[in-house]
């Protein structure tokens, strides 16, 4: 009998549409609680983060100029790709300690959430745009526009659904993101980059890093070319640090620490609006 040996996968970072190793050459160990097998994830450095931000900045204009319809199609494609790899994600969630039932539910909710936000791609602008009835002879309208490059510290405990729930509203609104996967369980996030890779998402729109929050949080919040920070951590010291750092270039700081992502109500267009700016344009009416 010829037993073929199991091939272990190398888990890499996802930067600028490429699977790359950390430039630091360092790793972080993750132990499978079921069988004590270990996986070595990349322990991202600030330089990895810097490269990711650069890639996000480069991608921003292009992605922002995609039509809402087009972004919706791409998001829907991500949902399709996730659906086709459902089993993989269920087993990964189970490996990370969830029951089969919980895992199935989380994957199915993740797909639903993607579809939910895909649908908003060409609609939230209509809900949040308006023509303002100014009293001068001008046509005046306000529309949402993406804030730019968004740094995200993903939820530590909701490593698939939470991860998706925080990045998707940001990108559907035209932002590009650099996201730090759950430090406790980065597996799903890293696997999700493979889903993204087969989903027509332009390079740089979503960059995914694994690593230690305490090593990266300072850079995530102090980089001068980042416009918004989303923090899903609950640590008060981290929150304070992010807030302080945000002052360097007046970043918008969004805290999602207390949100239960398994709740069906934890999705709405206001999550999209958290990473939007309102632009108001004036023009005279005459001839």
């Amino acid at each position: 009998m010829n037993t073929s040996m199991h091939i272990n996968k190398t888990y890499k970072l996802y930067i600028d549409g490429k699977f790359s190793r950390t430039e630091s050459g360092r790793y972080m160990k993750w132990v499978n609680p079921n069988n004590d097998q270990t996986i070595n994830f990349c322990r991202s450095s600030r330089k990895d983060y810097r490269n990711a931000v650069q890639s996000s900045r480069n991608a921003f204009n292009k992605w922002n100029n995609f039509s809402g319809y087009n972004r919706g199609q791409i998001l829907y494609r991500i949902a399709e790709m996730l659906d086709s790899r459902k089993e993989q994600f269920i087993s990964e969630l189970m490996v990370q300690g969830k029951s089969k039932k919980q895992s199935k539910q989380e994957v199915s909710m993740s797909i639903d959430r993607l579809v939910y936000y895909a649908g908003w791609s060409d609609k939230f602008q209509q809900i949040f745009s308006r023509v303002n009835p100014v009293s001068t002879p001008h046509y005046n309208f306000s529309t949402p526009e993406p804030s730019g490059v968004v740094s995200i510290i993903a939820p530590k405990d909701s490593y698939l659904l939470g991860f998706i729930s925080v990045i998707v509203p940001a990108i559907i609104g035209g932002n590009t993101v650099v996201v730090l996967a759950s430090e406790n369980n980065p597996l799903c996030a890293i696997s999700f980059s493979e889903v993204l890779h087969s989903s027509d998402v332009p390079n740089g729109v979503i960059n995914i890093l694994s690593g230690f929050t305490n090593e990266l949080i300072d850079h995530f919040s102090s980089h001068m070319d980042v416009n918004t920070v989303i923090n899903c951590g609950l640590d008060l010291k981290d929150t304070e640090l992010i807030q302080k750092n945000s002052a360097v270039n007046i970043k918008r700081v969004i805290n999602y620490g207390a949100i239960d992502w398994m709740n069906h109500d934890s999705q709405d267009p206001y999550f999209i609006m958290d990473c939007q700016e309102i632009k108001t344009t004036w023009h005279p009416i005459g001839y």
């Binding site: 303002n132 009293s135 001068t136 804030s147 270039n249 632009k279 108001t280 344009t281 004036w282 005279p284």
Partner: peptide
């Protein structure tokens, strides 16, 4: 990349019209 754009006009304001900035 700015919160208020005046096209063929400038520095006019109205209570119904949102005002505020991007970036710093």
């Amino acid at each position: 990349r700015a919160g208020v754009i005046w096209a063929n006009t400038f520095n006019i304001f109205d209570p119904t019209s949102p005002f505020g900035g991007y970036k710093e």
